[in-house]
Amino acid sequence: MTDRALAVVRAGALTTVQDRGRPGHAHLGVPRSGALDAPAAALVNRLVGNPPEAAVLETTLNGCAVRPRSAVTVAVGGAPCAVTVDGRPAPWGAPVRVPGGALLELGPARSGVRSYLAVAGGIAVEPVLGSRSTDLLSGLGPPPLADGAVLPLGRPAGPHAHVDTVPQPGPPAELVLRVTPGPRDDWFSTDAFRTLVTRAYRVSAASNRIGLRTEGPALARVRAGELPSEGMVLGAVQVPPDGRPVVFLADHPTTGGYPVIAVVRAADLAAAAQAAPGTPVRFTVVSRR
């Protein structure tokens, strides 16, 4: 292996390689995958001069630590966290030069869930179906990071961005998810839909890259039985038999047999990716564009 590589010192709770995913293969049962907070991943790529499709690292709640073999430019974004290089504080949301052999650490998320680490040149693991993303549902792409793993890096494409800093998102007090009804709202009582868009939910600790699970009032069906398996979209609010809505995120299954009562606007899914367990969730109905 060349010296353009990153050694994983502390993998963290769950750190994965992510890019823009592998859309276009849903008909083969392949989830789209990709960074859950896509705008944050795009921003850190821009900060280090990477093209938007470059692969970054996505951490979960407690950060990670890596050691580049040679000097690299990095940027950390997404969930705000402490950034240190060999123990010395470094800026979050700005390009940082890390000397070869130095220890780059991302601390626990101060708010939010997922921090993003871009390295100039991108994480250059072998792509699968055009993407380097780890797909936790189907196991495509590289495995989640493990202590001691070594990740190859690509060649830097261009100069990094000249910015002083980017704004840090404040801690989200409440996750507001705008939904359009359907396609299977007719499987539920009108009371159930009203419950969804008026009552308080919370983010469940069982949430993951496949779906944002919620705790709150159960949604009652008016139709029994199973829905014949049908195609699922990103942001689908699927209601399993326990009645608690699940919002499908990037690693969602391509087909499913539980009815979808509503669909969350794509623009609200980045916030969903950053909503820690216990965060209040409010679904609000909007008209279709």
């Binding site: 859309p23 276009g24 849903a26 008909h27 014949p228 398996s229 049908e230 195609g231 699922m232 979209v233 391509t254 087909t255 279709r288």
Partner: peptide
């Protein structure tokens, strides 16, 4: 359509620029 996903009784068209 970016995705054409058949299933048991349906076909999903996803990534449709002007759905209506």
């Amino acid at each position: 359509a970016a995705e054409i996903v058949p299933a048991a009784r349906t076909v999903l068209l996803d990534g449709v620029p002007e759905p209506s």
